[in-house]
Design a protein around this nucleic acid. Structure first.
Length: 136
DNA sequence: GTTCTAACA
DNA sequence: TGTTAGTA
């Protein structure tokens, strides 16, 4: 994937990201403090977001709207890793690798369900279930 | 005019 | 989370 460089290119300032994601600057900065996103900085210390950052913010927004708190989002979203592929490949222990695989698959499934679930009647149920795992 | 950090009548 | 203050 040589296209990654484009998606990771830091391009827009927070003002544009606000319109793109419909999130407040306060929220965007807050999510950064919790390492949900790691935008680049200009020499003047101003944030520069990439397409990847915007996508992550949109996922975060979707989860927030589902009633998931920061703690929950941290567990559902994969941490900001740039060479996650390498880390996985370099794992020599086959067993631990399998365990990590199933865990990441679980996270992906859960995230998909959270973002997909759109039925009003089930949202509250999902929120209730999530609180058992994430609220602590 | 925009963004940044820190803080709260 | 909003919002305001004082800068850069």
């Amino acid at each position: 994937m040589g296209d990654d460089i484009r998606r990771n290119m830091a391009l827009f300032p927070i003002g544009i990201v606000m319109k793109l994601t419909d999130l407040s600057a306060r929220q965007i900065r807050y999510y950064e403090q919790h390492n949900l996103i790691v935008p680049a900085r200009t020499s003047g210390n101003q944030r520069l977001f990439s397409f990847n950052d915007v996508e992550r913010l949109l996922e975060i927004k979707a989860l927030i709207e589902k009633g998931v708190n920061i703690a929950g989002i941290k567990q559902v979203m994969s941490p900001v890793t740039k060479e996650s592929e390498e880390a996985t490949v370099l794992t020599p222990d086959t067993e631990s690798k399998r365990r990590e695989m199933s865990e990441s698959q679980l996270r992906r499934l859960l995230k998909q369900e959270l973002i997909t679930a759109k039925r009003p009647g089930q949202v509250s149920l999902i929120q209730g279930e999530l609180s058992r795992f994430f609220n602590k």
